[in-house]
Design a protein around this nucleic acid. Sequence first.
DNA 1: TAGATTGTTAATCGATTAACAATC
DNA 2: TAGATTGTTAATCGATTAACAATC
Lengths: 211, 211
Amino acid sequence: MKSAISQATIGRLALYFRLFKSLYENGVQIISSEDLGKKLDITPVQIRKDLAIFGQFGMKGVGYFTAEMVSKIGNILGLNNHWNMAIVGVGHLGGALANYKNFEENGFKLAALFDKDIRIIGSTVHGIQISDIRNLKSVVKNRSIHIGIITVPALAAQDIANMLVDAGVKGIWNFAPTKIDVPAEIPLVNEDLAMDLSILSYHISRDRGEI
Amino acid sequence: MKSAISQATIGRLALYFRLFKSLYENGVQIISSEDLGKKLDITPVQIRKDLAIFGQFGMKGVGYFTAEMVSKIGNILGLNNHWNMAIVGVGHLGGALANYKNFEENGFKLAALFDKDIRIIGSTVHGIQISDIRNLKSVVKNRSIHIGIITVPALAAQDIANMLVDAGVKGIWNFAPTKIDVPAEIPLVNEDLAMDLSILSYHISRDRGEI
DNA sequence: TAGATTGTTAATCGATTAACAATC
DNA sequence: TAGATTGTTAATCGATTAACAATC
């Protein structure tokens, strides 16, 4: 507790992890914070500070060992675990996520799909049969689902979140463009595409007028 | 210039916009920062501060008029403009975004699709024919594309970004899990799904051990 | 007018950056 | 050892929160 590690730091940690992994796979064994910074557009001091939070990861005068970092940061982020995920709402976005390759590579396994549309229940996406949303609780329990992904319309999102929490998921990834409430002990990450597109729109508008 | 309006503020502005719009459409004409805050989990002071940056938007002792706010925030965010978008890389994610309804509602119009795979070039998604990526520049110019959406693998992302900038897009929305460089005057928004999923993984791991 | 609520100035908090000692 | 680079303490910067005056 009193962890006080900022969301920003965790996000950067995920970037470090990806880079260290890629470097390692390409035969790079050691790298300095200076060089890491150049590749990520992050200051070397920021990187050293972030990494130092968790202990002595580097070697003074030398740099960071990529193999060691992949393992250590992977442990911190829980990427060495194996997570089972369920997608609720197999529309375009849900279907796309179901087919996303990147997840499996990092230990995230799609283990269930849910929808309420009787026309698609029973059909298969990415080798997984779509279950009736009414069976959510039992399927989530039977398949040990850890992460629930919400890709239903905004109005349905809170109900789905409640169902997922009730079924015992450990975390929720919400793509519905709305705020949802979950108990404090259930981590929630929101993916707000409309918001991010609005941010882009703002900057484009800005750059045209003023400046 | 010297605008100094933080990314965080812009993001919240997009949330305010969405809420004001929804309230307006549901017949709510006036709302206080107190009530807005409850609906968004943001403190009323934060909301007033954010809105006050752009002028006197509310009425003291009364609150904010939803109709007025939709128009004013819409202007700030450029959501009253009409943006033409192109998706480069019509894989699962690109295809899903092409079919995403929410965008059109807010003035974002999909006007072109590109891929390099000869097997899908010429076929149609969401009423748009997929163009050969080799024709990117001419198509972007002819259709007045403002926003380029990158949904190609990480290794190809920088090349695509270069092509888009060269073709004259005004902004880039990057879904490839990698850093890309663009000229300072071209706004870039990154959508890093793998990073966000790692953040979720971190919190779930955390909640299990410690605490 | 009295009550409510905004907009703004000052205080606090947290995150980033600078400086540098530690040490491989 | 000398050079390089980390890890940490102090300084700065920016964003959030608190307090309150302005005013509908």
